[in-house]
């Protein structure tokens, strides 16, 4: 990761010794793999042995961030649990695009019930496995932001409050994409959705609404809460692996751009996720028992405009000659508040 060279060994050394001693690897751990680094330093996704929890042929749109995020998270969970994972899925894009009857993309045991009850079903699966004495089989529940922050929120809070042994993963694409891009309580301010059109004096989603589910999860003081992004796979996999090593209720909130709902180019999915992190709008952190324990620092800070401008859902902020500087400033203020709250830059330590 650093340019550090620790070459203090005198005399000629074998290349093998130097290749290990010089701890600079061209791309370090920014890329998913790295031929110069040992296999353990590469991601699960860089390995041909990955579980491929979701296989090819699924119906997700081109460049789907959720398809990527779910495979990233579940493959990491599979490796951490030695391949013994049961996944419970809420209704949503992920469920629909992977299981058009009678096909399935899932290559792991997978269960779907209804929209709002995935946390409760997962609690039941965990209880059933416990009764059967199958302690080695781990339960992962997952859903989009709609099922997590709105429809299944009561069940999720109950699962947290009882500290059931479930890892719940929310793939947050910031609206109900499957049904036609309706607003959810995770939709950001100013974003255009089918139900918050870019019309009138205050176009797009209303400022001051919505909920911050990672912080709500922290308020339950469950053992582990983390945010992650498809733009930082090493970080995401480390957090899933950490969560899988803990018993009790755990929550990971993964930011997954949606080309369809956000009006972005399909090839920009990871780039946008990265800009969300680098602008400060999507802070990456870990919390244990309600306290923030680690944050991922911003590497190359960018203004929120860099993140917003490539997305058509924010196009009304950038009308030529009528730039909505007031709302842009308000969104920048949100990013700055995150930077201060989580200490995301060197100048703003936690």
């Amino acid at each position: 990761m650093t340019e550090e060279t620790t070459g203090s060994t005198p005399g000629p050394a074998s290349p093998a010794a130097a290749t290990q001693r010089v701890r600079f690897y061209q791309t370090g751990t920014h890329t998913l793999g790295n031929r110069l680094m040992d296999a353990e330093s590469r991601t699960v996704q860089a390995s041909t042995d990955r579980a491929n929890a979701i296989t090819s042929g699924h119906r997700a749109c081109q460049g789907c961030g959720e398809a990527l995020g779910a495979r990233y998270a579940l493959d990491a969970a599979m490796r951490a649990a030695g391949g013994k994972v049961v996944a419970v899925n809420a209704t949503g894009c992920l469920e629909v695009f992977t299981t058009p009857y009678p096909e399935t993309s899932w290559q792991i045991p997978w269960l779907h019930s209804v929209f709002g009850n995935a946390p409760a079903v997962a609690s039941g699966v965990a209880a059933g496995l416990r009764m059967r004495g199958q302690k080695d089989v781990r339960v992962v529940a997952q859903g989009g932001d709609g099922s997590t922050t709105d429809i299944g929120f009561g069940c999720l809070s109950g699962m947290f409050e009882r500290n059931d042994d479930v890892l719940y993963i929310c793939y947050d694409n910031e609206a109900y994409m499957n049904t036609g891009v309706q607003r959810s309580s995770a939709t950001p301010p100013a974003a255009r959705t089918a139900t918050t059109p870019a019309l009138g004096a205050a176009p797009g989603n209303v400022f001051g609404t919505g909920k911050n589910l990672p912080r709500i999860a922290m308020a339950h003081e469950i053992p582990y809460v983390a945010t992650a992004s498809v733009a930082d796979l090493h970080d995401l996999e480390a957090k899933v692996t950490r969560a899988m090593a803990i018993c009790g209720a755990r929550y990971i909130h993964v930011h997954v751009p949606c080309p369809l709902g956000w009006g972005s180019a399909s090839h920009d999915t990871i780039r946008l996720a990265r800009l969300a992190v680098e602008s400060g709008l999507f802070p990456l952190f870990e919390a244990e028992h309600g306290e923030v324990t680690a944050v991922k620092k911003i590497r190359r800070k960018v203004p929120v405009e860099d993140y917003l401008r490539p997305q058509r859902r924010f196009a009304h902020l950038f009308r030529p000659g009528h730039e909505d500087t007031q709302r842009l400033a308000a969104i920048q203020a949100m990013a700055d508040a995150n930077i201060r709250r989580y200490g995301l830059t060197e100048e703003a330590p936690l």
Partner: peptide, 12 residues
């Protein structure tokens, strides 16, 4: 051979 393409494909 950084494996980025192999990892970032949503469609395997």
């Amino acid at each position: 051979e950084c494996d980025n393409c192999f990892g970032v494909c949503p469609d395997n």
